[in-house]
């Protein structure tokens, strides 16, 4: 406790206490031999109703006694919409920590249905793509066949034309020979004719 001057303290008590009141409590006087120690006397004086006495010096010496109050967020009465809760931090209360096990048939079936739908989609896509490719391939093959047929027809036509042309030429050559050699050469030409027939036959 801070030391207090007895005179000042007595003055203050005198000013604070009502002048008309006749209090039964003994006035603190250092001179009166009451047998009570100084400290006791002082505490008694403070215990008086309305007699709380605090000097400036005592307030200055005890700064820890009166701390500035810090308010919690809940005490501040802030509207909930205005408070900021970062997305990563917000966690629902009462939820299980750690791994979430799947052991019941329902949740397993749900996962299975999800996986199956995905896989079915993949397989269907593959099949559709394969079918489309097959169609394209078939169309190409048909076109190639058609082109091949056309080419063969053309070739046959040319061949036929050549054959006809040669046949006509052969006849003409025979006629000329017949005109030139009327006699013994006929047999030779006949042999030649036969040979030709064999080769083109």
């Amino acid at each position: 406790m801070a030391p207090t001057k007895p005179t000042k303290a007595s003055n203050k008590t005198r000013t604070k206490s009502k002048p008309g009141s006749n209090s039964k409590k003994p006035k603190p006087s250092s001179s009166a031999p009451t047998g009570i120690s100084k400290r006791k006397q002082k505490s008694l004086s403070l215990a008086k109703p309305g007699g709380a006495q605090k000097t400036k010096s005592s307030l200055h010496n005890n700064p820890n006694k009166r701390k500035k109050r810090t308010y919690k967020e809940s005490e501040l009465d802030i509207p909930t919409l205005n408070s900021i809760i970062p997305a990563g931090i917000a966690k629902p209360k009462g939820e299980k920590k750690g791994k979430k096990f799947v052991d019941d048939v329902e949740s397993m079936s749900a996962i299975m249905a999800m996986v199956n739908a995905e896989k079915e989609g993949h397989i269907e896509g593959k099949l559709v793509r394969a079918r489309q490719l097959e169609e394209v391939r078939e169309a190409k093959r048909r076109e190639a066949e058609k082109r091949e047929g056309e080419r063969r027809d053309k070739f046959e036509g040319v061949k036929e034309g050549l054959r006809k042309k040669r046949g006509r030429k052969g006849k003409m050559v025979d006629g000329e020979v017949g005109k030139e050699n009327d006699g013994g050469e006929k047999e030779k030409s006949g042999k030649k004719k036969e040979r030709k027939r064999v080769s083109f036959g």
Binding site: K99, K100, F101, V102, S107, I111, M114, V115
Partner: peptide, 13 residues
């Protein structure tokens, strides 16, 4: 232990 959700999905896939 039982499988977790992610593990079940991977296994089923």
């Amino acid at each position: 232990r039982p499988l977790t959700e992610a593990e079940t999905k991977t296994l089923f896939e």
